[in-house]
Design a protein around this nucleic acid. Structure first.
Length: 637
RNA sequence: GCUGGCGUAGCUCAGCUGGUAGAGCAACUGAUUCGUAAUCAGUAGGUCCGCGGUUCGACUCCGCGCGCCAGCACCA
């Protein structure tokens, strides 16, 4: 006699064991139709799951987040089913749910083509229409291995063989297609209606580049058509904002074949860059950093001592001259230790904070390059703090606070925190790593930040906090970092004299707030879609003359704006005003000033904002006051 | 680096199964002197990514390389 408590608090009694589907039907026919799965005492189960005892039961539909995930998972199976029908020789492997969709990896003798994808999508729709029931079965492990081997599904057999013995294996069957899966799944293929195959790409078996490469088909799936349309629209929007595209449209930078992974900054892009760099320089200055500049190439002997030779060589560029080997620096830290090492340092000098806008070159694998986001030559707002162990926590907490302020000034408020712990390839003892990891964790706790741990993702010399931010359309970008390093100072002979007059090795904190300048500018471009806040806009004001008669006045206005510290230019071309407005609008200028007879006579300017709003005529001094207010409000003063 | 796709004018792209290239926008020149997102006319512009090969003939087919794009792997 199970009593079933539903989410609305009501309780239903049943005379005997009852399935989730039956419970849904007892509530109503609509819910029975919509039921995709159930949640019994917090655990997701199929609608065929039989409830024996008193339980809390919720019916999962496409309205639930879990419901959409189940749809996606089942759609991955639907894809595999279609592949097996169209290409029986293909072997199935795994097909998990990912953000916004799913993928499924197949082993197949040839690559899938776009035509294959179209055919598969069509077949998926057909199979869905057949409304094939999806049934769960249990099998013993060895039996399952034998079963899949007999089917020629060797990857699947390998997955099952790696499951600990004794655990029953659950399989899902829809028609002729059987797949290993934990479930739950929708009760029938007929529930799968809104999906789309997106692309095909290679992916290594078990994510290891030593293994065979499989064919991965990506798809998206949703509960409602509107949701999928919104998602596809978002992708389009993201494509429109692509920094490579906007960078070309706004004439900010370019890249070319002869310099893969390196950027040619154009005059307008360089203004944007300088605004960010000068802002960060003020941040250094106001927070106790001393700015330095170190050589770009250094003898390899230094990189051998620092550990880079052993741990980072394949990512470095080398050059030689007169029988000496040099490395182009991939990081600024060894240089900063050399600065620290000049002269005797006392504990009174600590924390000793150095900052540099230094260019680093890293020989990234060609396949990793991606516009500004992943370059081979990039500048960092790089800083190193030499301090005592006792000072680590305070420095980390202060740093996190500073980083939050900087991100906020650039318009980012949503920050994601991760701690990357010791990797396999590393320098330093386990005891040192224990200490360093603990310090970072404690500092984030004290900063009130939620964080997750990324095991094994740390740098070779120390663990790190990775700070990521979310942009205007919800994408996440890693920018800042804070790394605790107990090893490099010692390797490079850094010391200070302690209170008890002993020589001690300082701890070194590696930190960067915006991270790579290139990447950060790329993020800014995409976040603002090129419509930068006033202080960052490469061109802030265009003064548009109506006819030749107003040229002098337009020049005068532009000159006065420049004198007031703004980037302004007069557009005196012999073009219609609407033509000029269109051009500067496409260039996303914050303000356009129209000057004609009326304005010239009244000594005013007619102000048009980037949003297309006409603010009417005002005096130049009123307009300048407005600009100043706006610049201050955006954190530049 | 790996898998797949792609590389034609400054940009976006067309060019069927091989017969040495075309559009729109931009640029330039001239005309137009105009009030809030495109004035008209004309001109110029290409070692069809590079190097080899097949062929009477290659942008087109083949091979090698380079770069870009998507994903994987990598990412102090």
């Amino acid at each position: 006699m199970p009593d079933i408590r539903l989410p609305d608090g009501s309780v239903k009694s049943f005379p005997g064991p009852v399935t989730v589907a039956e419970i849904a039907a007892s509530v109503g026919a609509g819910l029975a139709r919509a039921a995709l799965a159930g949640r019994v005492d917090g655990k997701l189960v199929d609608t065929s799951h039989r409830v024996e005892a008193d339980s809390e039961v919720a019916i999962i539909t496409e309205r639930d987040k879990d419901g959409v995930e189940i749809l996606r998972h089942s759609t991955a199976h639907l894809l595999a089913h279609a592949v097996k029908e169209l290409f029986p020789e293909a072997q199935v492997t795994i097909g998990p749910v990912i953000e916004n969709g799913f993928y499924y990896d197949f082993a197949f003798k040839r690559p899938f083509t776009p035509e294959d994808l179209a055919a598969l999508e069509k077949r998926m729709l057909e199979i869905a229409k057949r409304e094939i029931p999806v049934a769960r079965k249990l099998m013993q492990r060895d039996e399952a291995v034998a079963f899949f081997n007999a089917q020629g599904e060797h990857y699947k057999a390998e997955i099952i063989a790696s499951i600990p013995p004794g655990e029953p294996i659950s399989l899902y069957q829809q028609g002729d297609f059987i797949d290993l899966c934990r479930g739950p799944h929708v009760p029938s293929t007929g529930k799968l209606k809104v999906f789309k195959l997106m692309r095909v790409a290679g992916a290594y078996w078990r994510g290891d580049s030593n293994n065979a490469m499989l064919q991965r088909i990506y798809g998206t799936a949703w509960g409602r058509k509107e949701d999928q349309d919104a998602y596809l629209k978002m992708l389009e929007e993201a494509e429109k904002r692509d920094h490579r595209r906007v960078g070309a449209q706004l004439d900010l930078f370019h890249m070319q074949d002869e310099a893969p992974g390196m950027v040619f900054w154009h005059p307008k892009g360089w203004i944007l860059w300088q605004e960010v760099e000068q802002y960060m320089r003020r941040v250094y200055r106001d927070n106790g950093y001393l700015e330095v500049r170190c050589p770009m190439i250094l003898d390899v002997s230094l990189w051998k001592r620092s550990g880079h030779w052993d741990n980072y060589r394949e990512n470095m560029f080398f050059t030689s001259s007169e029988n000496r080997e040099y490395a182009v620096k991939p990081m600024n830290c060894p240089g900063h230790v050399q600065v620290f090492n000049q002269g005797v340092k006392s504990y009174r000098n600590l924390p000793y904070r150095l900052g540099e806008f230094g260019v680093c070159h890293r020989n990234e694998p060609s396949g990793a390059l991606h516009g500004l986001m992943r370059a081979r030559a990039f500048w960092q707002d790089d800083g190193h703090i030499f301090c005592t162990e006792d000072q680590i926590l305070g420095e980390c907490i202060a740093y996190t606070a500073l980083l939050r302020k900087v991100y906020r000034d650039f318009g980012f408020t949503d920050i994601i925190y991760k701690i990357a712990t010791r990797p396999e390839k590393r320098v330093g003892s386990d005891a040192i790593w224990d200490k360093a990891e603990a310090a970072l964790i404690e500092s984030l706790k004290r900063s009130g930040a939620d964080f997750q741990i990324n095991p094994g993702e740390g740098a070779f010399y120390g663990p790190k906090i990775e700070y990521s931010l979310k942009d205007a359309i919800g994408r996440v970008w890693q920018c800042g970092t804070m790394q605790v390093d107990f090893s490099m100072p010692q390797l490079l002979g850094a010391e200070y004299i302690s209170e008890d007059n002993a020589r001690k090795v300082p701890v070194m904190l590696h930190r960067a707030i915006v991270g790579s300048m290139e990447r950060f500018l790329g993020i800014l471009i995409e976040n603002y879609a090129g419509a930068f806040p006033l202080w960052l806009s490469p061109e802030q004001v265009a003064v548009l003359s109506i006819t030749e008669r107003h040229a002098d006045y337009a020049e005068q206005v532009a000159g006065a704006l420049r004198k007031a510290g703004f980037r302004a230019a007069a557009d005196l071309r012999n073009e219609k005003i609407s033509y000029k407005i269109r051009e500067h609008s496409l260039q996303k200028l914050p303000y356009q000033l129209v000057v004609g007879d009326k304005e010239k006579q009244a000594n005013t300017v007619a102000v048009r904002t980037r949003g297309g709003e006409d603010l009417g005529a005002m005096t130049l001094s009123d307009f300048i006051a407005r600009l100043q207010t706006e610049a201050v409000a955006l954190g530049t003063a």
